[in-house]
Nucleic acid binder design. Structure first.
Lengths: 247, 247
DNA sequence: TGTACATCAGTGAACGCGCGTTCACTGATGTAC
DNA sequence: TGTACATCAGTGAACGCGCGTTCACTGATGTAC
């Protein structure tokens, strides 16, 4: 269920000894409790002592499993990215391969559903940075880019299939500096879509998370929008139009 | 310079006695130091004791000016909203009244410039909620809605002037529940634009802050985009197309 | 103008709290012969 | 299979820290007569 198992299965293939299984279980418990704590008090207030209390163990015992507070944050970050990534993958995989608009919609809805269900994890991943904490890039980059990689994957497949109408609005000039960035992305992810399409993909990406963040972070206020599902779906429709995909 | 003066000028008209001026100055200092602290350690770590230290005063002395920690947060919130609102207003006012695309661009650029200059304040206003803190709506709603009110103002003026091409893409059906929300907004803000245009306005709003948040919160990573100004301007262009305004 | 009193700013000590982290330790679980 | 040793999980006390908040207080600044 949690992605810890996946991660540990990747590093160590064998089911291992009872002691090792107990250890893996404890680490999973620590992450689970950490996530609960995150949900209740936020990332900045995450404390090893509180996790130890919930675990029913003396505070220093946690140091057998986690080097320090920052590492617990890192574990939660990675676990969150993988949870989100798993749900997004499952949602997209359930849509026919040639239904690009459907895949995009599924991805977007999966992101939103997860964000609303796990607002604290969403905040940790996509909200304001945690003061004094710097994520270790070598461990977080891969899980942290799963959603955007998947998104551009759909995007590029649609382009290759000729389903992307890039000329949907008058061509906008892309400055050379921006074109260089886009070229680097194209090379790294092995894409075919031209600059104008890629740039629209970035807009899609930021807009999607902008809409979700407004909802999760309470920017809409309590009463302004009661029809939030409908609002979100409508925004998706318009965004699909922006990249020239028929919903 | 800060908007405290504006606020206090609104409640008390007179320049007042020396003692009162000294008091106002001290409150302004507290807010300034609070903002610096915010920038260095984040909202969750904001402490009255630290502000007192920077103010060169014993910790209990701050309670002469601020009821408790939460009220300091509220002051910072209101001050931030007003700072942003002032800059946005100034930027928009500098554009000719009939140049709606220019006004929108000016608003967007002002938001982004302020956010990049004051990332901590931006985080407090638009990032993850501060755990354990609930903003008092009766004091924050008015300053907190200045930007969006200004945005829909531009938007509606463009519509009334016939500059908004609402039929830019095939009409999307707006569900009844969402239409009700939009109708309430239309009444409250005295707008003329139809549902489809208003809904696009909301998308514009969330997309704008989505783009800014990604940049401020470091979601782009350190290297992916070096041409951030160009990327943002390009996104504005596309968004202008979405609402049917010629940039 | 001068005195008596009220208001206010700031002091310093104290309260109880929770935090991260270290360290020497006790037992239980595993491993090697 | 049985014993001797190594590894590991968890204990409990302690360290130094910063926090929010209260309270009785000292002086300085203002106000009323």
């Amino acid at each position: 269920m949690t992605s810890v198992e996946t991660t540990s299965a990747n590093t160590k293939e064998k089911p291992a000894t009872p002691r090792e299984r107990a250890r893996a279980q404890t680490i999973a418990d620590i992450i689970r409790l950490g996530r609960e704590h995150l949900a209740l008090h936020g990332a900045a207030a995450l404390s090893l002592r509180a996790v130890a209390r919930d675990l029913g163990v003396v505070s220093s015992a946690v140091y057998r499993y986690v080097e320090n507070r920052d590492e617990l944050l890192t574990l939660l970050l990675i676990d969150g990215y993988n949870q989100l990534g798993d749900e997004v993958d499952a949602a997209v995989d359930a849509v026919p391969e040639d239904d690009f608009a459907g895949q995009f919609t599924a991805l977007a809805k999966a992101v939103r559903a997860w964000a609303i269900r796990e607002p604290a994890s969403y905040s940790l991943l996509f909200g304001s940075p945690v003061p004094g904490y710097q994520a270790p890039g070598e461990r977080t980059t891969v899980p942290g880019t799963r959603v955007i990689v998947r998104l551009v994957g759909i995007f590029d497949a649609a382009y290759r299939a000729g389903a992307l109408n890039a000329e949907v609005s008058p061509a906008v000039v892309i400055p050379e500096k921006l074109a260089k960035d886009l070229a680097a992305i194209r090379t790294e992810l092995n894409l075919a879509a031209p600059d104008a399409s890629l740039a629209r993909g970035v807009l899609l990406w930021t807009s999607l998370f902008g809409a979700v963040s407004f909802e999760v972070f309470g920017q809409y206020g309590p009463d302004t929008f009661t029809a939030r599902d409908e609002l979100f779906e409508h925004q998706l429709c318009v965004l699909l139009g922006v990249i020239g995909l028929q919903g």
